[in-house]
């Protein structure tokens, strides 16, 4: 660091060292005194050939004198960013969002893919079991029917073979005379003659 850097930058940096000033009110600390003298000294702080380790250790913190009339100047606004950079930053933000969305979608899709396959497998097994049950139910019921008809006396179940004697014939009722049809037209109503307008 060179003395020419005793500029706005050095001053602004000195504000960072405020706690130093609170050593003891009224009496400037040793460091402060040193820094004052350094600030006023026309001699550059860094001599050529000095080792940087030592120089940094002994270098006084530049500090504006409390009594001086110099005032802190506000930092100028940052330079407006160029358009391409702004665009790039916006693109970065947008792509970050998209990437996040895509990653979540990929995780979800992968999860669903794995889960749905397991679901398919278990449902397929269930379908096979149901089909097996259906077949066995059908077979058992038919075997039971055959067994009842063959080995047991159907009469003990209250069953008798169907025969011509079991037919109940209900003779059709004689034809009734047709009811007089009622006219749907009210005889009192006057016929409406259509009128064209």
């Amino acid at each position: 660091m060179v003395a020419s850097s005793n500029s706005r930058r050095a001053v602004s940096r000195s504000t960072n060292f405020r706690p130093v000033r609170s050593d003891r009110p009224g009496q400037p600390s040793q460091a402060l005194r040193k820094s004052r003298s350094a600030a006023m000294s026309p001699i550059p702080l860094k001599k050529p050939g000095m080792r940087s380790v030592n120089s940094s250790a002994s270098r006084p913190t530049p500090f504006a004198p409390r009594n001086s009339r110099t005032t802190l100047q506000a930092m100028p606004d940052r330079m407006p960013l160029p358009g391409w950079l702004r665009l790039l930053k916006q693109t970065e933000k947008a792509s970050l969002m998209v990437a996040f969305g895509l990653v979540s979608a990929a995780v979800a899709t992968y999860g669903w893919a794995v889960y749905s396959q397991q679901l398919w497998g278990s449902n397929f097994n269930r379908l096979n079991t149901l089909r097996r049950d259906e077949r066995q139910l059908l077979k058992s019921s038919e075997l039971m029917k055959n067994d009842i008809a063959r080995h047991n006396d159907p009469k003990q179940y209250g069953l008798v073979p169907r025969n011509a004697e079991h037919i109940v014939v209900i003779p059709p009722a004689p034809l009734r005379s047709a009811l007089p049809t009622r006219s749907t037209v009210d005889p009192k109503a006057k016929p409406i003659t259509p009128i064209g307008y």
Partner: peptide, 11 residues
Amino acid sequence: KVVAGIEQVPP
């Protein structure tokens, strides 16, 4: 007799 019974053939 059986066929008439099962097929419900009227007399």
